[in-house]
Simulated scan of single mutants.
Amino acid sequence: MQRSDFRFFHRLRVRWAEVDMQKIVFNAHYLMYFDTAIADYWRALALPYEEAMHALGGDLYVRKATIDFRASARMDDMLDVGMRCARIGTSSMVFEGGLFRQDQFLVGCELVYVFADPATQTSKPVPQVLREVLEGYEAGEPMRSVETGDWATLGEGAGALRRAVFIEEQNIPESLEWDAHDAVVLHAVARNRLGQVIATGRLLHAEDGMSHIGRMAVHRNLRSGGHGAAVVRVLEDAAKARGDREVALNAQRSAERFYARLGYAAHGEGFEEAGIPHIEMRRTLKP
Rank of each mutant, 00 (worst) to 15 (best):
M1Q: 07
M1L: 05
R3D: 06
D5N: 14
F6E: 12
F6L: 04
F9Y: 00
F9P: 08
L12T: 00
L12R: 07
L12S: 03
V14W: 09
E18H: 00
K23H: 13
F26I: 05
Y30R: 01
L31W: 09
M32E: 14
A37V: 03
D40V: 12
A44K: 07
A44S: 11
L45A: 06
P48Y: 02
Y49F: 08
E51D: 11
L60H: 13
L60T: 00
Y61R: 10
A65W: 05
F69G: 05
S72I: 10
D76H: 14
L79Q: 03
L79W: 09
R84W: 03
C85M: 00
I88V: 08
G89Y: 05
T90K: 15
T90L: 14
G98A: 09
Q102C: 15
D103C: 11
D103E: 11
Q104I: 12
V107T: 09
G108M: 00
A116P: 05
A119N: 13
T120Y: 03
S123F: 02
K124I: 12
P127E: 02
P127D: 00
P127N: 01
Q128F: 02
R131S: 10
E132P: 06
E135V: 01
Y137C: 07
E138V: 12
G140H: 04
E141W: 07
P142I: 01
M143H: 13
E147L: 03
T148N: 13
T148D: 12
D150I: 06
T153C: 15
T153I: 13
E156S: 05
G157K: 02
L161K: 11
A164F: 09
F166P: 14
E174D: 09
A183Y: 05
V184R: 15
V184W: 10
V185K: 15
A188W: 04
Q196K: 01
V197S: 05
I198R: 00
A199D: 04
A199V: 04
L204N: 14
D208L: 13
I213W: 01
V218H: 06
H219P: 12
N221C: 15
N221I: 14
N221E: 15
L222R: 03
V231I: 02
V231E: 11
D237R: 13
A238Y: 12
A241I: 00
A241V: 02
Q252Y: 03
Y259V: 07
Y259D: 06
A265T: 15
G270L: 09
E273T: 01
I276N: 06
P277M: 11
I279N: 10
R282L: 12
L285Y: 08
